[in-house]
């Protein structure tokens, strides 16, 4: 009675997966709206907490005037952009973020494997964390504030390029969350190490990379390509030359490292991770 159903294979078409994701998300929003007060409190508190970071930057600049040749508003652009992208990725990746604790430790991953859909899709559908709206709003305000005080033309090209950077950065952050989740197949204990990567990476890329030591910069360019989705393309946006001396072409194309990193991480998760899990069962 069932063999005729979806003969093209269980993975299904792209449109079908998007439709299912949409359904997951609408359900997730519905569930979160059952706790309206806690949702509002989470948004407001996140807004306040992240705003403290901006306050820190502002204090630093009012004291020292500039940071390695960068002005306050330029740094605000880096800061705002990274925070917008991270808030989006963070909101999308709840399922991966809690993978070790909720799916591996408590055994919920079995259930995902028992359903004829990609586990990545199901994990993305775990939740769209609306409480990240706080960080997102704060980042967006800081970003527009920074851009508004700089000599950056407000036109469709700027807007499109900004969206391109944000999109690529979201991909990269998602990839890091997914790699972190992949690690929990093997150990649930080394998560702290990965947190250095996500949260530490976010902290580091809130500032222009040229202020850091070369080894640090190289790590975030070639190993975890955070600089590729923040620092280099923002140089293009701000119309500044790189003190380190990269070309414009490189700066414009390197954000694609984000989507590439994401595709690789999904493959690693779904192939290596799942294969390991199904051979150990725990």
């Amino acid at each position: 009675m069932d063999s005729t159903r979806s003969p093209e294979g269980a993975r299904g078409g792209f449109a079908e997966n998007v439709a299912l994701y949409g359904r997951y998300i609408s359900i997730s929003i519905m569930s979160q709206m059952q706790y309206k007060l806690s949702f509002l409190l989470a948004v407001v508190s996140q807004l306040l907490v992240t705003s403290l970071g901006v306050l820190g930057i502002w204090v630093m600049f009012s004291r020292f005037g500039s940071l390695g040749g960068w002005g306050l508003h330029e740094v605000l652009v880096f800061y705002g952009l990274v925070n917008v992208a991270f808030a989006i990725a963070d909101a999308l990746a709840t399922g991966f973020d809690r993978f070790g604790s909720e799916y591996i430790r408590q055994g919920g991953f079995d259930r995902l494997l028992l359903r004829p859909r990609s586990v990545s899709l199901q994990l993305l559908g775990h939740e769209l964390a609306l409480r990240r709206l706080g960080g997102f709003t704060q980042g967006l305000i800081v970003l527009t504030w920074g851009l508004g005080h700089l000599d950056v033309p407000f036109d469709p090209a700027t807007l499109l390029f900004t969206l391109y950077i944000i999109g690529c950065a979201v991909c990269l952050f998602l990839a890091i969350f997914i790699l972190q989740a992949t690690l929990s197949f093997w150990t649930v204990e080394s998560i702290e190490l990965m947190n250095t990567m996500t949260y530490g990476g976010v902290e580091a890329s809130q500032y222009p990379m040229s202020i850091y030591e070369p080894w640090f910069r190289h790590f975030f360019t070639f190993v975890v390509p955070l600089a590729c989705v923040t620092y280099f393309p923002v140089l293009v946006l701000l119309g500044r030359d790189d003190p380190v001396g990269t070309s414009r072409w490189f700066q414009m194309l390197c954000p694609l490292a984000g989507p590439i990193f994401l595709m690789v991480s999904i493959q690693v998760f779904e192939r290596l991770g799942v294969r390991y899990y199904t051979s150990t069962g725990s």
């Binding site: 069932d2 063999s3 269980a10 993975r11 359903r115 004829p116 859909r117």
Partner: peptide, 8 residues
Amino acid sequence: RHQHVADI
């Protein structure tokens, strides 16, 4: 797995 679990 995908085809299999669709039927159990």
